[in-house]
Simulated assay, not measured.
Amino acid sequence: MALASAVLRDRRGTGPWRLPVVFLFGLVHGLGFAGALGIEESRSWELLLSLLSFNVGIEAVQLGIIAVVFPLLLLLRRTPAHRWALPAMAAPIVIVSLYWFWDRLSVAA
């Protein structure tokens, strides 16, 4: 998603591709967790409450970060620096994501 945000932008900074990509990423991510959890096993239902509590905590932290960062990004958008700021912020995310992807592939093999 970070790579797509940096490369596949139109003049407004968004595109019709964004929501489908986010939806598909979330779907694949959720299916991966569901497969790892193995809901059909009896013990997995005990883990479900822990997983849900963890997810609620993660979402709360993400909303807190957005509440702080979003106003700063709105201010940044009013400056000429916004043209290079998105690719500069996306590059480390892409690099770390590719590293994790490669690491997962090498573990699975």
Rank of each mutant, 00 (worst) to 15 (best):
L48M: 11
G64F: 06
G64I: 05
R18D: 11
P87W: 07
T14M: 08
A60D: 00
I66Q: 08
E59D: 14
D10Y: 02
L47D: 13
L98P: 03
N55Q: 11
S42R: 15
A108K: 00
P80F: 01
V68N: 03
F25H: 04
G57M: 00
V94A: 08
F25E: 02
W84G: 05
F25K: 00
R18V: 15
W100C: 05
A109N: 14
E41H: 14
V107F: 11
F23I: 15
V107S: 06
A34H: 01
E59H: 12
A34L: 05
R78K: 15
A6R: 02
V69D: 09
P71M: 03
V94F: 05
V96H: 12
L3C: 08
V22A: 13
F23Y: 07
I65H: 05
W100Y: 15
A2T: 01
L74K: 15
A67N: 03
V69K: 07
A60I: 05
G35S: 06
L63Y: 12
P92W: 04
A90G: 01
W100D: 08
A109R: 13
P80H: 04
I65C: 10
G32R: 00
L3M: 10
V107I: 14
A85H: 02
L105P: 03
V56H: 07
G15K: 00
A108L: 11
R18A: 09
S106D: 11
S42M: 10
I39L: 15
E59I: 15
T79Y: 04
F33V: 06
L51F: 07
R9S: 15
H82A: 14
V7Y: 08
E41N: 12
S106R: 12
F54C: 05
V69Y: 09
A109L: 13
A34K: 01
P80E: 01
A34Y: 00
A36E: 14
V7H: 03
A109S: 15
T14P: 02
I65S: 02
G26Y: 00
V56R: 03
R83H: 13
R78S: 12
G15Q: 01
H82Y: 14
E59A: 15
G13M: 05
T14L: 07
I66W: 09
V68D: 09
L72W: 09
N55Y: 07
G15L: 01
I95A: 13
F23N: 06
E40I: 04
L86M: 13
